[in-house]
């Protein structure tokens, strides 16, 4: 009798189990996604310092450039965040006792932008930033203790343009102008920007001018503001919406710059992930999120009300 009951229960249970869904483990192999640089020896902790700012070394220059953007009948608070690798050298005295003069070698590693019309973001392909040459500037410090003043000569970047286009020259309006170059090597004149998730691409030439000024915060950090000017010529786009004219009005009150030492010396953070004693753009890029999380650099959130 018990055996019969056991059989009945077993058969009943088996029948019910035949209906219960069991989670599948499908044998689709994982695939390598983006290759993300190993954080390696990077540290955001400050190193030892004597309290004075010594320019010689590797620095990160972070710029927030803020505009009111008028496009597609709308106005938005538009921001451009640029990440530069800066090598400072040639430190020497200026005309006055407390003046320090140095050379700057400046290389754009990446640029992010806030969304424009309908939430679309313009992406600057790595091919564009990689093709931009290093720029040479001069910098000055008046005092190297906290409160000292910082000033830099103008940084002018030509995208898709030869250096025949000077800082004050009108931009070429046609892609046929010989001063327009295929800087990113994609076979199209100018440089190619990607808008949205490949929503469209647009060919442009652009000139950006920055004049930086600031104040020494500590031995490894300068904070300040900037004057900026952006000129742009749009040659072609894969969608008419992306070719539409727009107007940028600079909002200097929202501009900010931070220059921070990243070679681990004199109180600076160390972003040398591969331990080769040199900092490159890949190491800056790999550290971006951590720098933002640690609020060593800060991106403001767009606020459309600022432009109304």
């Amino acid at each position: 009798m018990n055996a019969r009951r056991l059989l009945d229960v077993s058969l009943g249970s088996l029948a019910l189990m035949a209906c219960e869904a069991q989670r599948l483990n499908v044998s689709v192999p994982d695939r390598d996604a983006l290759i993300i640089a190993d954080a390696g020896a990077q540290t955001l902790d400050a190193g030892m310092t004597d309290g004075e700012l010594h320019a010689d070394g590797t620095w990160l220059l972070f710029i927030q450039d803020r505009y009111c953007l008028y496009a597609a009948g709308a106005v938005s608070d538009f921001m451009v965040w640029s990440w530069y690798l800066v090598n400072l050298s040639g430190e020497g005295p200026g005309a006055e006792m407390n003046q320090i003069y140095f050379q700057e070698r400046v290389k754009l590693c990446a640029q992010d932008q806030s969304p424009v019309t309908a939430g679309l973001v313009t992406y600057i392909p790595a091919a564009v930033t990689a093709a931009l040459p290093e720029r040479h500037l001069q910098g000055f410090l008046v005092g190297n203790l906290p409160g000292g003043r910082f000033l830099s000569t103008e940084l002018s970047e030509n995208w898709g343009l030869s250096d025949a286009v000077g800082p004050e020259d009108p931009l070429p309006e046609s892609a046929d102008d010989p001063r327009v170059i295929d800087q990113d090597g994609d076979g199209k004149p100018g440089v190619t920007m990607v808008i949205g998730n490949n929503f469209c691409t647009v060919q442009i030439a652009q000139r950006t001018r920055y004049r930086l000024s600031g104040e020494v915060v500590d031995s490894a950090r300068i904070e300040g503001t900037l004057w900026s000017d952006v000129s742009k010529s749009v040659f072609d786009a894969t969608l008419p919406l992306c070719k539409a004219e727009n107007q940028l009005d600079s909002r200097a009150d929202g501009n900010r710059m931070v220059m921070m030492r990243v070679d681990g010396k004199n109180g600076g953070t160390n972003l040398d992930a591969d331990g080769d004693g040199r900092i490159d753009c890949a190491e800056i890029m790999a550290a971006r999120e951590r720098l933002l999380e640690a609020e060593l650099v800060v991106k403001d959130a767009p606020n459309a009300a600022r432009c109304r």
Binding site: A33, L34, A110, D112, Y123, P125, D186, V194, N197, T201
Partner: peptide, 19 residues
């Protein structure tokens, strides 16, 4: 859903669009 492309973007490398 992502056409193969040779253009890197900050959200996806060109290599990441393959396949």
């Amino acid at each position: 859903e992502v056409p193969d492309t040779k253009v890197d973007t900050p959200v996806q490398s060109a290599a990441g669009t393959t396949g």
